[in-house]
Simulated assay, not measured.
Amino acid sequence: MRRTNKERTESMRLMLMAAARTLFVAKGYAETATPEIASAAGVTRGALYHHFEDKKALFAAVVAEEARQVGAGIAARSENTSNARDALLDGARGYFDAMAVPGRTRLLLLDGPAILGLRSLQDIDREHAEGTLKAGLSDLFAAGGKDLALLDVFAHLLSAAFDRAALAIEAGAQRKDYESAIAALIDGIAVK
């Protein structure tokens, strides 16, 4: 069965992204050259540049895919929870599960902001995971009779707490301690 041009294009993009991800994680962005990526993907540099404007655009695509997978993990873990508090806690566990994928913390929390800039990373997060967090907090605020005026601020602060926790866990800290601390933060938010 012959593949369409669209299918071939998507397949090539995915091959390039997989090869680039492996190299970005192993060597870092700065130490990874486009000829290496093309070689690892089994294509020419011309093919790489046909699909991505430059190495930074390829890196951005890799980071966006990682963020999409994190968002999917959060949603899958929290979608069937009956109350706002438990949904947020399940979402936190989904986040920590997703961030445990080797290399993901480096790509999303260390290299991503340094290479793409904080604003670009915030845009990517907004597209993939921020909505789930805001929806959960909105439900928690509503259940606790809280004013929604500070929803964005709380979402930003809690997101930063999740990221710092993921970095600490990657460095060897006990995940259960961070899950307990996140629960305490959420419970503190829920108090009237």
Rank of each mutant, 00 (worst) to 15 (best):
residue 97 D to V: 01
residue 34 T to H: 05
residue 65 E to V: 05
residue 29 Y to K: 00
residue 18 A to S: 03
residue 92 A to E: 11
residue 67 A to D: 14
residue 22 T to I: 07
residue 86 D to W: 12
residue 71 G to C: 14
residue 105 T to M: 02
residue 110 L to I: 03
residue 36 E to H: 04
residue 106 R to Y: 01
residue 80 N to C: 09
residue 43 V to D: 00
residue 24 F to Q: 00
residue 99 M to P: 05
residue 48 L to Y: 08
residue 62 V to A: 02
residue 66 E to A: 11
residue 53 E to R: 15
residue 73 G to F: 04
residue 110 L to A: 06
residue 17 M to C: 14
residue 74 I to G: 11
residue 51 H to L: 02
residue 100 A to Q: 02
residue 84 A to E: 15
residue 69 Q to S: 13
residue 63 V to E: 13
residue 56 K to W: 09
residue 71 G to F: 12
residue 59 F to K: 02
residue 69 Q to A: 09
residue 50 H to G: 09
residue 49 Y to E: 07
residue 71 G to R: 15
residue 92 A to M: 10
residue 92 A to N: 12
residue 48 L to S: 09
residue 74 I to N: 07
residue 54 D to L: 10
residue 66 E to R: 06
residue 70 V to R: 00
residue 65 E to R: 08
residue 32 T to R: 06
residue 46 G to W: 04
residue 53 E to T: 15
residue 34 T to S: 08
residue 62 V to W: 12
residue 77 R to Q: 13
residue 104 R to S: 00
residue 58 L to W: 06
residue 97 D to T: 12
residue 36 E to F: 03
residue 76 A to I: 09
residue 82 S to F: 05
residue 81 T to C: 15
residue 54 D to F: 08
residue 64 A to I: 04
residue 61 A to Q: 07
residue 63 V to D: 14
residue 48 L to G: 10
residue 55 K to F: 08
residue 27 K to T: 11
residue 90 D to F: 05
residue 32 T to L: 10
residue 107 L to H: 03
residue 57 A to S: 11
residue 83 N to T: 11
residue 40 A to M: 06
residue 56 K to R: 14
residue 62 V to I: 09
residue 102 P to S: 00
residue 19 A to R: 04
residue 22 T to Y: 06
residue 72 A to C: 14
residue 38 A to S: 13
residue 102 P to Y: 01
residue 33 A to P: 09
residue 44 T to E: 12
residue 86 D to V: 06
residue 43 V to A: 05
